[in-house]
């Protein structure tokens, strides 16, 4: 009789050991939280006040990334009047990794144009949510991805606080995530700025080391406090982003989500990730213990083997 109980116990112990082995992999999540981006990470400072809405950046992106032809010419300003569901403005999709939208904030006489693309977070939510680890944050600061292993779960799209990753829903055989990759393959890794930065006639975008861009941005605010909202969007939002923004009008009036926390997205998930190894470690012993307690009486009645059941309990503790 005792042998049977022991076997049960051993089975549970094995389950526990296996579970603990499984738990080891979750520890990576904690390491990533301490990261503050790569020290030499590059970035782009976008000064919305300078943008005139010429959409050259959209055109350059289209050419650089070999994207399909747009529905309208890139010099057609009528796209600024397009609205979608519930007044949504244009957004990035599988055919456009960057789009410029027009806003009319109350604080300025002129419309404000805002270019959006992947912000290349220091701690990308897309990267941490990807179960095949398709995303990489390069030392240059770009968040790139490997379309060859993308399963298409679209969890990164759920996770991205900026709604940037798009999906090629139209493809039946090879749909993958599509987003701005900071022109990593063709430019960034070769020491060149992204195509949109290079083409911009107004130098709305300043390309440089992220650390220096932060200094430059604050100097601009200091030098022209009348021209800028005193905030560098992306310096701290969701743990900091490589692309950062200065605006002449309140950020929420020019298409930014200002309710964002400074904590990276992954910190919201930490509470759960922390419980995983605990459940894996505690549950086997706890429920085996429950089992032994709950069934001990039967064992005694059935087999009259008080001693063995007692021994099992001792082992458990």
């Amino acid at each position: 009789m005792s042998g049977i109980s022991r076997r049960k116990f051993l089975t549970c112990t094995l389950v526990g050991a296996g579970a603990t082995a499984l738990s080891l992999k979750t520890t990576d999540a904690f390491a990533s939280a301490k990261l503050e981006g790569y020290p030499d990470s590059m970035g782009v400072l976008v000064d919305l006040g300078r943008c005139v809405g010429c959409r050259s950046c959209e055109a350059a992106c289209n050419r650089e990334q070999h994207l399909p032809a747009p529905a309208q010419s890139f010099d057609d300003p009528s796209v600024f009047d397009q609205t979608f569901h519930n007044g949504q403005k244009r957004r990035t999709d599988e055919q456009a990794y960057t789009v410029v939208n027009r806003y009319e904030p109350t604080a300025t006489d002129q419309p404000v144009y805002r270019k959006s693309q992947c912000n290349h977070c220091n701690e990308p939510a897309c990267l941490t949510s990807c179960f095949v680890n398709a995303y990489t944050k390069t030392s240059e600061g770009a968040v790139i991805y490997n379309p060859n292993i993308c399963v298409g779960c679209r969890n990164c799209m759920i996770a991205c606080p900026f709604n940037m990753p798009a999906y090629s829903y139209s493809s039946a055989t090879n749909p993958v995530i599509k987003k701005c990759i900071f022109c990593y393959d063709t430019r960034l890794k070769n020491g060149l700025p992204p195509a949109c930065v290079e083409i911009c006639p107004q130098q709305v975008m300043t390309f440089g080391h992220r650390k220096e861009l932060i200094e430059i941005a604050h100097e601009r605010i200091k030098a022209r406090p009348d021209r800028y909202i005193d905030h560098l969007y992306g310096e701290n939002e969701v743990g900091g982003t490589s692309w950062m923004y200065l605006a002449p009008a309140p950020f929420e009036e020019v298409g930014f989500d200002t309710t964002m926390n400074n904590e990276p997205i992954i910190s919201n998930v930490k509470d759960f990730l922390g419980t995983v190894p605990m459940v894996l470690a505690i549950w086997p012993a706890l429920f085996t213990g429950f089992h032994l307690l709950a069934t001990r009486k039967h064992d005694i009645e059935q087999h009259g083997d008080d001693h063995s059941a007692h021994k099992e309990e001792e082992k458990k503790s």
Binding site: L22, K25, T26, D28, A29, S32, T128, S129, C130, F131, V132, N133, A134, N146, I149, C150, V151, G152, C153, R154, N155, Y167, N174, P175, V176, I266, V269, F272, L273, V276
Partner: peptide
């Protein structure tokens, strides 16, 4: 729903994203 369902075994055999909640769900 998966874009490329034939890649469902990828998180098991091809490439691991162990910090992702979905990785835990899959396993």
């Amino acid at each position: 729903d998966l874009g490329q369902p034939w890649r469902l075994p990828y998180p098991m055999v091809v490439s691991f994203g162990p910090a992702a909640v979905l990785f835990l769900v899959a396993w």
